[in-house]
Design a protein around this nucleic acid. Structure first.
Lengths: 195, 195
DNA sequence: TACATTTGATAACAAATGTTATCGCCAGCC
DNA sequence: GGCTGGCGATAACATTTGTTATCAAATGTA
C-alpha cells in the first residue's frame, strides 16, 4: 500500500528503508482535527484510507479550501516549511488511516535523501505543478459561475461529490449550502427536460 | 538600472556579463499586446518603466489577473516552461520600457548559469514564494467581500490604485466597474461621517 | 483650440446569491 | 422500535452584485 510513496519520490531501496522507518501510523475517527488553524505544522500526512479537508475560519464561518483522498499527501506546506503559524486547519471527514512523518525526522533525513540525483529537480517539478494547479483553481474562481464550478467538479473530481457532505462542497465552491441545493435542483430540472 | 537583475539572481560579474548580453530592449506604447492568450510564451520581460497587466478573456469579457510595475519580472511561466499555449495574455497599461530575454537564449545560458552554487536553491525558494502568494490571493477571494478586497489592495498595493484605470482594478477584484464605483462612494460617505 | 476617446459616477432595474426558518429523510444508537 | 442528530431540500425574504444607459470630467491628439 505504502509502496506508492516510494515511487512517488523516486527512492531506491535503501532510501526507502530509511524513509519508511520514520513513518508512523495513525488511525482516527471522522471529524478529527489534525492541525489547528494558527498552529505550527509539524507533520506531513499520507492518506491510506479516508478523506481530509483543509479549511479555515473567517468570522465564525467554516470555509473549505481543498479535499484529499487515498494516496494523496497533505500538509500545510507554508507553515511546515517556515515554522510559521498555519493559515489553515486540517480535519478528517471520514474515519482515516494515515501515515505521517514529523518535521524533526524529515530534517534528519533530508541530507541523506538529497544525495539522490535528480530528487531536487523532481521536487522543483512538483512545486511547479502545485503552483499551476493553484493558478488554474484560482482562474476558475474568477471566470466561472458557481454552476460552472460545480459542473467542473463533477467532471474533474467526482469522488468529491460522492464522498463529501454537501455543505463542505458548498463552502469549497464559495457558495452557501442553500444555493448549492438550488443549483442541483436546477440541473435536475434541466436534465428532465432534455430527456 | 538593470543592475537590480544581477542582484536578484545573485550572479557574479562574468555571469552577469553573459546574461545581460542577451537582454534586448523594447519600448512600446500603452495598450500594446506583449503576449496573446493562446500564444506560446517565448520571452521573459523585465520592467524598467511602466506597468503591465496579465489578463484573459472569457465569453468576451476581459479579466485582469495581476499587475506588474517597475523592476518586476513578468512571464507566462507555465507556457514559457512547457512550450504550451498560454492561458493568459499580457499587455501594457502605460507606455513601457522593457528588457527581455528569449527562451532560445535562456536555454543556451542555463547550463552556464546553473554552475552558480545555490542558484537552483534560490530558484526553488522563488517558486515557493510565488506559490504562497497565489494561495494567499486565492484565500482572499474566498473569504473577503469585494469591499474588503479593495481595502486590502489599498493597504498592500496602493500603487495599483494610483496608476491603474479603475475598470482594470474592478476586473482584478472580480467585480464590475459599476460596483467598484459604489464601493468607493460608500467608503467616502463612511469617512465623512466618521470625521 | 476643438474633437474624439477614455474614464468614472450614478440611477434604475434585473439577476444572482445569502439568510433564516421549516420540514422530511435517514443513519446510528440506546 | 423509537429517539436523536446530521444532512439536504425548499420557501420567503433580504442583500449583494450585475447590466444597461446616461452624463460629466479628464485625457490625448490632430
Amino acid at each position: 500500500m505504502l509502496e506508492q510513496l516510494k515511487h512517488k519520490f523516486h527512492l531506491n531501496d535503501s532510501q526507502w528503508e530509511l524513509f519508511s522507518s520514520c513513518l508512523k501510523k495513525l488511525k482516527v475517527p471522522a471529524k478529527t482535527t489534525l492541525l489547528q488553524e494558527g498552529e505550527i505544522a509539524k507533520r506531513i500526512f499520507f492518506i491510506e484510507k479516508g478523506c481530509i479537508r483543509v479549511l479555515f475560519n473567517h468570522d465564525g464561518r467554516d470555509l473549505t479550501l481543498q479535499f484529499f483522498f487515498e494516496n494523496e499527501t497533505v500538509a500545510s506546506m507554508e507553515s511546515f516549511k517556515k515554522g510559521a503559524p498555519s493559515l489553515m486547519g486540517m480535519e478528517t471527514i471520514e474515519p482515516c488511516t494515515l501515515w505521517f512523518i514529523s518535521k524533526h525526522d524529515l530534517d534528519l533525513l533530508l541530507p541523506e535523501l538529497e544525495k539522490v540525483s535528480g530528487l531536487r529537480n523532481k521536487f522543483t517539478e512538483y512545486l511547479f505543478e502545485r503552483m499551476f494547479l493553484y493558478m488554474r483553481h484560482f482562474f476558475s474562481f474568477i471566470k466561472d459561475s458557481p454552476l460552472e464550478r460545480y459542473q467542473n467538479l463533477i467532471q474533474e473530481k467526482p469522488i468529491v461529490i460522492q464522498r463529501v457532505p454537501q455543505h463542505y462542497i458548498a463552502s469549497y465552491l464559495g457558495i452557501s449550502s442553500v444555493h448549492l441545493s438550488r443549483i442541483k435542483s436546477q440541473l435536475v430540472r434541466k436534465n428532465m427536460k432534455s430527456s
